[in-house]
């Protein structure tokens, strides 16, 4: 079954900039899809459609149901991890931030506490619940961001530039963490090593179009395609 189906999706920003120009895409359940492309290609715009934050012209279905038919349900299924943890973590403490989504879903207090404890444990942040997000390192902030999504038992997790700003060790730890997530994953990134490490399929976007799609190994080996769309070939690829 397809976890995500996007059909001929168009989106224009209020200032007239075209974000998406007829994108169509299918992501099977359990897949890990890499989304690459230069800045301004429309990757983030597409991600924001997947749980109904943006509403363009065209179809977006999550497990067969149109996103805007039941936004609350779609937002429980599709979790977004934003590029900058300062955007994702907005509550006074890590605990409050991770509990934010479940409380909005109306879960009872005991279930929320258990889920938050489990989510923090799964990202290696047990005991950090009382800390202010500002006092975490960037790596810890990124892991706390994932916990805010994991806690809602999301079946699809969408990452926007997940490894930006991390040092090499933190980056590889984070890649391992993403690999172990039991969910369908969509990763928008410029980090081609991450794509090669985690993704089974890759789509290339440029100027609001989906310009190429295929197995990760094939796309990353296509030097001409990567150069044409402003992407470097992996150094040891």
């Amino acid at each position: 079954m397809n976890a995500i189906e996007v059909t001929n999706l168009h989106y224009t920003y209020p200032d007239g900039t075209h974000g998406l120009r007829g994108v169509s895409l299918c992501v099977p359940e359990g897949a890990c899809l890499g989304m690459v492309g230069p800045n301004g290609a429309g990757k983030s715009t597409l991600l924001l459609h997947l749980n109904g934050i943006l509403n363009g012209h065209g179809g977006v279905r999550v497990f067969g149901k149109p996103v805007h038919e039941d936004l609350q349900a779609a937002r429980q299924i599709v979790g977004l991890v934003f590029q900058n943890p300062d955007d994702q973590l907005f509550m006074p403490t890590v605990f409050d931030d991770v509990a934010f989504g479940p409380l909005n879903l109306g879960w009872p207090e005991e279930r929320v506490r258990e889920a938050v404890t489990r989510a923090l444990e799964s990202v290696g942040l047990t005991g950090h619940g009382d800390r202010s997000p500002h006092h975490l390192s960037l790596g810890e902030q990124k892991r706390a961001s994932i916990a805010t999504v994991l806690v809602m038992d999301c079946r699809i997790v969408v990452f926007d530039e997940p490894t930006t700003g991390l040092d090499p060790r933190g980056r590889w730890e984070f890649i391992d963490l993403i690999r172990d997530l039991p969910a369908t994953k969509i990763i928008a990134t410029h980090d081609l090593d991450l794509v090669r490490e985690l993704c089974d399929r890759v789509v290339v976007m440029d100027d609001g179009h989906l310009v190429a799609e295929g197995p990760a190994a094939d796309v990353l080996a296509d030097q001409e395609l990567l150069e044409e769309h402003g992407l470097a070939k992996p150094l040891d690829g």
Partner: peptide, 22 residues
């Protein structure tokens, strides 16, 4: 601009205008 992105992050996690604290 940050406020816009934070707003999107809140909506993505089911925010409906009420701040709930445990």
């Amino acid at each position: 601009e940050r406020a816009e992105r934070v707003g999107q992050a809140m909506v993505a996690r089911g925010y409906d205008g009420r701040l709930r604290l445990l």
